[in-house]
Simulated assay, not measured.
Amino acid sequence: MVSLARVSDLNELITLASRRFIETITQIQFSGALHGDGLVRVVLTGGGAGIGLLKELARLDAAAEAQSESFPTLRVDWSRVHIFFGDERNVPVSHQDSNEGQARDTLLKHISIPEGNIHGYGLNGQDLDEAAAEYEKTVRRHAPDGFDLHLLGMGGEGHINSLFPHTDAVREKEKLVMAVKDSPKPPAERVTLTMPAINSSGRVWLLVAGAEKASAAAAVMRSAEAVDWPAAGVGGTKETVLFLTDDAATELG
């Protein structure tokens, strides 16, 4: 079942999601993560809301550090967080289209997280099937029981990660990672986590803003067919939350 967290606009969405992120991750770190080892596995997403969230997390982390001695506040222990990416374009990390590159620029280079805790796809124009197979090994090695939190953006047609309507990738039932060689949204070549990988997560959060996404948001809330509206097929084992701005909620009734 999808829980709705409705907000007025993108700024309020980012504010709410960032604070809930910190509360959730710190709670997991104190009470025991999915794997029972004190490490939290988080999948990041790109897009306006996703990158906005990362920027706000960096700002809040810096603020918490600045006031830590005079007024201790809730803060994520990033040394016990492992970072993954929902999908990646077939470009180097230095490219402006790289999801990992954007995450590094907005959050990861600003926090105290070990480099070994950041699990990128390592794409740079190589064979996509081989890259997908290698990332599947990475996921199974470092997150064998799934992810604690999977963040997702969503397109107007309901795509998540690089899972687009009526494609082989959205229909995949076994593999955790797939190559996408003909994405309808450029660039065409990508590697993506699949629905089985997403739904292995304890918590799945959809970050959705914009009037053009109203039909897809309504499809999520009515549990439409995933092959038609991929975002409607996601479900965390503990919770699934749709953070939704008012302009994207016009078709909810």
Rank of each mutant, 00 (worst) to 15 (best):
H150Q: 08
V76I: 13
G48Q: 08
P196M: 03
S112Q: 14
M1I: 11
T250D: 14
K213G: 06
E130M: 09
R171T: 03
I83V: 15
I22M: 09
I51T: 04
L206S: 02
R80M: 05
V170F: 13
R41N: 02
L128Y: 10
M178S: 15
G202F: 02
A217E: 12
I51S: 03
Q102L: 10
E88N: 06
S8N: 04
D129M: 14
E189A: 05
R140M: 10
A17T: 13
W205R: 02
S223N: 05
L163I: 07
R140F: 03
T194C: 03
A218Y: 00
N11W: 06
F147L: 01
G32R: 10
R190E: 08
A249K: 00
L206Q: 00
R141K: 15
A249G: 00
G158P: 04
A197V: 02
D228T: 11
K181Q: 11
G116V: 07
A197L: 02
A58F: 12
L10V: 13
A17C: 10
K173T: 12
D145I: 01
E23K: 14
K137R: 15
T167F: 14
R104H: 15
F85V: 03
V170R: 10
D105P: 05
A226K: 06
Q29A: 11
A226I: 02
L128N: 05
D61N: 14
T24A: 07
V7P: 14
L252G: 09
D61R: 06
I83T: 07
V227S: 15
L39V: 13
Q67F: 08
A216P: 09
E239T: 01
K137T: 13
A218N: 05
A132K: 02
V93Q: 10
E56A: 12
V204R: 01
G122K: 05
D129L: 15
F85L: 09
A231R: 00
R6N: 03
P196K: 01
A63G: 04
A5Q: 03
T15W: 13
G253Q: 14
G38C: 05
L54H: 09
S98C: 13
T245M: 00
R6W: 04
T45W: 00
R89D: 13
E69V: 03
V180W: 06
L193I: 03
D37V: 09
E115G: 14
